[in-house]
């Protein structure tokens, strides 16, 4: 049987969703039989490959690198899943938005509230540039499936992936659609 070419990424997030992914414990072994993990923070591949079947996108779109990557993901992936509340709603990552545009946020964090060497960090080509607004993934690219939770519990992730790798569209019960 064909293996599903799967990727996972984290954009502006805390990696908690990936931790929860690892919490699927022994089922990961079963999953490993069904997929090729072609790109992920958990494996050492530098370039997002072509022809990916499914990608779990953790985190919101917060900087230019996120934006670039998420557009590339959409272009190269059949099924994009917003993975966790940051990807679906912006969540904690987007809590900076009410403070204003990127420069205002940087000023607040690195100048106004700083008591040691206040300076706005700037390393062109190394540090990605903040976008003025953090946006959920579906505000930037079309998204095929939404997986809620901060983080989504391991069982919920499995409830989505298990039918998917068997070619069945996952129908989560309403109670598993809970944010937070």
């Amino acid at each position: 049987m064909d293996r599903v070419k799967m990727a996972t990424v984290w954009l502006g997030g805390c990696s908690g969703c990936h931790m929860s992914f690892l919490d699927m414990d022994e089922w990961l072994v079963d999953l490993a039989q069904r997929i090729d993990l072609v790109y992920s923070p958990l494996v050492d591949v530098k370039e997002y490959p072509e022809d990916v079947d499914v990608c779990l996108v953790e985190g919101a779109v917060a900087n230019d690198e996120n934006l670039h990557l998420v557009r590339r993901i959409r272009a190269r992936t059949r099924l994009v899943i917003s993975f966790g509340d940051c990807a679906v709603t912006g969540n904690v990552t987007a809590m900076r938005n009410p403070l204003g545009v990127a420069l205002e946020v940087l000023k607040t964090s690195y100048l106004d509230k700083s008591n040691l060497h206040p300076a706005i960090p700037s390393e062109p080509e190394i540090l990605p540039v903040l976008l003025d607004q953090v946006r959920p993934v579906h505000a930037v690219i079309p998204v095929d499936y939404y997986l809620q939770g901060c983080p989504p519990p391991a069982d919920r992730i499995r409830a989505v992936l298990e039918p998917l790798v068997n070619g069945v569209w996952p129908e989560l019960p309403l109670a598993e659609r809970r944010f937070g």
Partner: peptide
């Protein structure tokens, strides 16, 4: 985005 009728996966 693909419809949920048709899953674009090899499986």
């Amino acid at each position: 985005p693909p419809s949920n009728q048709r899953i674009p996966l090899p499986v």
